[in-house]
């Protein structure tokens, strides 16, 4: 066999090996981390929208407006937490005039989404503590 043919065979073999290697790369494996974040945010979006449409935030605002007892407010927070917990929300925090008044679940980790609740009396903010980055 002449050397040119020999070189060509080696070059083709090497190229084929690299091509197979490239083709074998599983895109799901590369995007797994991003896709899992996307899935998490999608579920969170869906659950928050469901809470919004079913009037859970309206109910909480109404209780705060009429000066309901702390038990009623806590129960309402519990309902919200139970609905939203599977989507990665570790805890809820309700602030009144900047001071933490109610906590539900864990607030040690994660990042926060703030939602002000306008009422005619005080300034309320509901914070969702989300697990992970």
């Amino acid at each position: 066999m002449n050397s040119a043919l020999y070189d060509s065979v080696i070059a083709l073999a090497l190229s084929s090996f690299l091509l197979i290697f490239v083709l074998l790369i599983n895109p799901v494996f590369i995007f797994e981390s991003s896709l899992s974040k996307l899935r998490k945010v999608s579920i969170l979006e869906k659950n928050i929208k469901s809470l919004y449409e079913n009037g859970y935030f309206g109910k909480l605002a109404k209780l705060l407006e009429i000066g309901a007892s702390s038990n009623e407010i806590r129960n309402c927070l519990k309902e919200i937490y139970e609905k939203i917990h599977p989507s990665g929300v570790a805890g809820l925090r309700l602030l009144i005039n900047g001071r933490i008044m109610y906590i539900y679940g864990s607030i040690k980790q994660g990042w926060i989404i703030r939602m002000p609740i306008p009422t005619s009396k005080d300034s309320y903010v509901l914070e969702f503590i989300i697990c992970g980055e």
Binding site: V41, I113, I117
Partner: peptide, 29 residues
């Protein structure tokens, strides 16, 4: 490219969450 696309999709989904909150806050206010 696809990674950036996914990141942008995540941001859009995140914006949708803020958008829902915003509609509620504007409505109540």
């Amino acid at each position: 490219f696809y990674n950036n696309l996914i990141v942008k999709l995540i941001i859009v989904k995140l914006c949708n969450i803020y958008f829902t909150n915003l509609k509620y806050v504007i409505g109540r206010h």
